[in-house]
Design a binder for these strands. Sequence first.
DNA 1: GTCTATACACCGATAGAC
DNA 2: GTCTATCGGTGTATAGAC
Lengths: 186, 186
Amino acid sequence: MSKATVIPQLMAVFQQYGYEGASITRFSEATGLKRASLYHYFPNGKEEMAAVVLDYITQALKEQLLAPLHSDRPPIDRIRAMNQKVDAFYQHGQQDCLLALLSIGEAHQLFQAQVQQALHLWIDSLAAVLVEAGLSSITARHRAEDAIVQIQGALVLTRGLNDTATFERLLHQMPETLLRPDDTLE
Amino acid sequence: MSKATVIPQLMAVFQQYGYEGASITRFSEATGLKRASLYHYFPNGKEEMAAVVLDYITQALKEQLLAPLHSDRPPIDRIRAMNQKVDAFYQHGQQDCLLALLSIGEAHQLFQAQVQQALHLWIDSLAAVLVEAGLSSITARHRAEDAIVQIQGALVLTRGLNDTATFERLLHQMPETLLRPDDTLE
DNA sequence: GTCTATACACCGATAGAC
DNA sequence: GTCTATCGGTGTATAGAC
């Protein structure tokens, strides 16, 4: 049992219970390791676990969600490809986003820097594609922010309404919405 | 000290710490009442407190945010009026939404019905105004969902980026966005 | 590296005096 | 209605055997 093996299992616990609701007992049940063994891997306990999980999902963001944005296909195909990954990553909206969960309560202070960095990476990567597609720099940035807002907001609505329809609809129409002509009113 | 007096104080604790992070000790500090006194008002403890707070904010939703939608002014003015209230209610995006916080972890099971009802009320009220403005029933519903998605997503982004700019921008451009002509592509 | 055993703080909840 | 005192349970974290 290596450290890398347990990280996805810790991630699942954080996703299901949030930062405060995630306890060492639950981590122990999820990994099959006893408390003391977890402290062997993560001497700083829950806080260190969350930090490592955040590094892990930042890597997943780069390698899974953002990688399709750097292909040589047309911009709209790249965004479609990203959204396919987004749909899988969040399991059609039924999986909570750790970037959102870890900016609540006590966790907000602790992980703000890491969360901020990941969100900026996402926005910047998407905005770069929109600039390449011919949008102005400022419009591209706004649209990229809007995309992340839609994803995060749709995740909230999916949980609250217990219905993935809005998440799926917004993901589906997002590529065209993001690439619509620049009104210069924005 | 009456029961109604402490509800806003309990709400503030839930908003700051989420459901799991909110403890009786913190409620005691926020209200000035000792633990046993809180159990006098809320025999079922934290769960009952959250349920009462949810009723309170559902009432606030109706009386503060949705009331402007029922005036006799043009639809765009009514939506602008709602968004002014939204901006104040969430303190320019810096105040977390309890409907989102109470659909996480353990709280999700407990309060799903109340959260769902409040969100549907919000969406239905907004969609009714959009229908009155001439949009088709299905488009109105989608746009109303989009509005709640934008508000909730922008709240997430405000926390994560520590910047209220996106929240303010989206609120400002929302009235025109919601009332734009129906493409019938939606 | 993994375990058992344990220390100590805080949690939710209740009993009972005033 | 508000308090002090207290209970059992769970939380984080560590010591030390194997």
